[in-house]
């Protein structure tokens, strides 16, 4: 079997899902036997080639995330939504109850610690936040989901390992889902 290619990408999330992925500890070396990790926040930041599997953490919150996730979909045979932010928008989506201007002003204008000379961020180099945060399946077809905030490391490893061996994981049978 030729070595597969994996990528992991981080959109609007807290990095907790990537930390849980790292919590597979030494098993990362087993994964590296079966696959090349071609892109991952802890491996390097080069562009995304065509890959077999991409694990995506986080929701789509901005113009850049949207562009990224469409590109990820085009490049990946299998896209896995890793964690609740990617699956439901979770905590990252909590700002959807407010309009974006209110959310902005709370942090950049009205914060108790702010002085009076600040300006609200608005620069060509900054990503443009969307009014509403959405989970991945609202903008692309997602092939598999791993719920959890973050999903347990054993679950992430199990799913990845099954896909790497061309099997479809079965979360309910494997009793891998944990609350939280």
């Amino acid at each position: 079997m030729p070595k597969k290619k994996i990528a992991t990408v981080w959109l609007g999330g807290c990095s907790g899902c990537h930390m849980s992925l790292l919590d597979i500890d030494e098993r990362i070396l087993d994964v590296a036997q079966l696959a090349d990790i071609v892109k991952c926040p802890i491996v390097d930041g080069k562009e995304l080639p065509e890959v077999d599997i991409t694990l995506v953490e986080g929701s789509v919150t901005s113009d850049e995330h949207l562009r990224e996730i469409l590109h990820i979909r085009a490049q990946s045979k299998t896209v896995i939504a890793m964690g609740d932010c990617a699956v439901t928008s979770n905590i990252t989506g909590m700002r959807n109850y407010f309009n974006l201007k209110e959310v902005f002003d709370t942090a950049y204008v009205n914060a108790i610690s702010n002085d009076t000379e600040g300006k609200v961020p608005n620069h060509i180099a900054l990503l443009k936040l969307h009014e509403k945060v959405v989970p991945l399946q609202e903008v692309i077809t997602v092939d598999f989901v791993i719920p959890g905030c973050p999903p347990n490391a054993d679950t992430i490893f199990y799913v990845l390992y099954e896909f790497l061996n061309d099997r479809i994981p079965n979360l309910s049978e494997a009793k891998k889902l944990k609350y939280g």
Binding site: G16, C17, N90, Y97, V103, T106
Partner: peptide
């Protein structure tokens, strides 16, 4: 380039929820 708006969306919630919500600012 990152902004998630915790200061606003925590308003209206019970203060006792905060030790569970705010860790989600950062997984590290």
């Amino acid at each position: 380039n990152e902004f998630r708006g915790f200061e606003k969306f925590c308003e209206g919630r019970m203060y006792t929820e905060m030790p569970i919500i705010t860790p989600r600012i950062c997984g590290i």
